[in-house]
Design a protein around this nucleic acid. Structure first.
Lengths: 353, 353
DNA sequence: CTGTTAGCGCGTTCAG
DNA sequence: CTGAACGCGCTAACAG
């Protein structure tokens, strides 16, 4: 294997000089830089990240801590996009990436977890989907031993940054669009309801719509933000808001829908998967209610019915997280980064290719 | 960070002794082993894999080379299962894992690729979905510089193993089941056809069924095996086999179906995604043809219609690949490993949870 | 059976 | 601006 030594020999300079041009140090003359670069090309030299990590104090191995809550494998898409975005960006920045699943560290004490990461020469960690209940990880964040970037959790300190989209705004936007769109469409639902219940609900409708909001997990960071968005919207549009906890589970959303859809006008879901569960339930109940989701996963294109949903680019978010981690490792202060989102409807024709 | 030195000090032995018990070397007395183990526990010591990799000649870092042909993100599920299976098994065996996408090494020469892997101290590589056209990787396999395990490609040499399911048999099985099931069900299709075309096809049916087989990529390893399975079946059941190249693309399968489904009795697809494309096309054409797929991805549960498909456990395959790589690195000879498959129908009720 | 020693490939002082 | 020398944490002969 060709090492820095070979490059030094070929360029007729010292090893440390090669190291310096490799790491863009100042105080190297253009002439020697050229020589070294040429030698590197000729020898096809690629610096050994493993050795670099061992040698340098601020080494550059980062862990991707993936919370694979994927009850349904259908949303592996999200994790895969996270991984892909991070891995590509990491290569660009010459970072070594170590993918780690939550299951690999759960039940471990802080001391063990710290030892584990240190044993891997890991200095930076990206956490995908931190749960509010995860005491150990929260302690890890507080301790500031590692540089950390949190996806979808708004914790910031001088060693920790946060990256996510504006959850509150996004939920507000997609819900508002779904509700108002439906108001324009007409009164089919009102008619249906009045027939069902045998009473006029024109009055009810004119006063306020009843919204079934199927939320995510209790005490979840994103969940709370999204609920805030819903509450604001409810106030503005004078809506009756019924909140149920779907736990991001398609099945639970399904059951909640069976139980409560009859007494509601619109179903807003905090995830696409739950939206799909709700939609399928509605179809089985043979009633129509507008439904919207959150995430923009491809699966939405396959379920037949189109729904509004929030599209966030998971790979872009993840790539940005790597960049933020990189900045932290360069001793920048932690900060919160808000990335953009869009409202979309996924058609089968759009996702097929 | 606690290092082997600290352990040695605490256990009152030499560093190398600690290293020996760490790596299960012989010639260490039970007494000192105990002492060392205790010190390790007390200090929460985890050996630094990076340093180990640098030092040892047969280091244990493996690359996962992922061919993310995922035109549709809906099948990220497969890659994610691959990754998950490999990563968990790798942790079990104390291997360092480096996920690499094909896009990161494409356009590189062999020399560059070798340099890249060596620079990462990688000694073993798992290739997911090797294309027959990938000259560079084939050369890499021939050269036997790295230990390699190929998923879904039957190349074997003393440094290379192959892991896959029996593609020919699987395709044969699922196609046979789909075709014969349909024969038992009755003549709805025959009737429909005869009405459409205004002629009796009872005679045709009694002689031979016409099968549209939507295959994968030309020159693909799995594709060729699966076609063999279809040909054998065609011979046994006296079928007319029409083979079209779907390139594993949902869209192409859709177009092929539009073009040829009318003149066929059954549509057999070499992947679930293509099966979904075919099925959706059939629904739009408003005709019925039995369809089956291959892979067993969760998405199949969402498309409404049930189909037969081949379920293979991607995580199990991947985990096994890691084990095989481990054996190769322990200087075992390469070999071919066939893993089991099953025929399933995916219901929505089965995949939801 | 145990300890000593020499690297693995690289980053980093600190003299020159 | 350059180079010699040391060490990161660990493995692997080799001595004892």
């Amino acid at each position: 294997m060709v090492s820095i030594k070979d490059v030094a020999k070929r360029a007729e300079v010292a090893i440390s000089t090669v190291s310096k041009v490799l790491n863009n140090y100042p105080n190297v003359s253009e002439g020697t830089k050229k020589k070294v670069r040429q030698a590197i090309e000729e020898l096809n030299f690629v610096p050994n990240t493993v050795a670099a990590a061992l040698s340098s104090k601020h080494n550059f191995r980062i862990a991707l801590l993936i919370n694979t809550i994927t009850q349904t494998k259908a949303i592996d898409e999200i994790d895969m996009q996270y991984l892909s975005g991070a891995i590509h960006k990491a290569k660009e920045l010459n970072l070594d990436v170590v993918p780690i699943f939550f299951s690999m560290i759960e039940e471990k004490s802080i001391a063990e977890i710290i030892a584990y990461f240190q044993s891997q020469s890991i200095t930076g960690i990206i956490v995908y989907g931190l749960s509010k209940d995860d005491k150990v990880l929260h302690k890890l964040i507080e301790r500031q031993i590692f540089k950390m970037v949190l996806i979808d959790a708004p914790l910031v300190n001088s060693a920790t940054s946060a990256v996510w989209v504006n959850q509150k705004q996004a939920q507000y936007d997609v819900a508002k669009k779904t509700i108002t769109e439906n108001m324009e469409v007409g009164h089919s639902m009102a008619e249906e309801l009045s027939m069902e219940k045998g009473r006029s609900i024109v009055e009810e409708l004119s006063t306020s719509k009843r919204i079934l909001y199927i939320a995510g997990k209790k005490n979840g960071y994103v969940t709370e933000e999204r609920i805030k968005g819903m509450k604001q919207l409810a106030q503005e549009l004078n809506l009756q808001l019924m909140i149920q906890w779907g736990e991001f589970s398609e099945l639970q959303a399904r059951q909640i829908t069976f139980a409560h859809a009859h007494s509601c006008d619109v179903v807003i879901c905090a995830s696409d998967l739950m939206a799909i569960g709700a939609m399928k339930a509605l179809m089985e109940m043979d009633i129509f209610r507008p439904v919207c989701g959150f995430d923009g996963i491809t699966l939405m294109g396959y379920v037949g019915k189109q729904m509004n949903t929030i599209r966030q680019s998971f790979s872009a978010i993840s790539a940005r997280a790597v960049e933020e981690l990189w900045l932290l490792m360069k001793d920048q202060e932690g900060r919160e980064v808000i990335l953009p989102h869009t409202i979309v409807r996924l058609h089968y024709e759009d996702i097929i290719c």
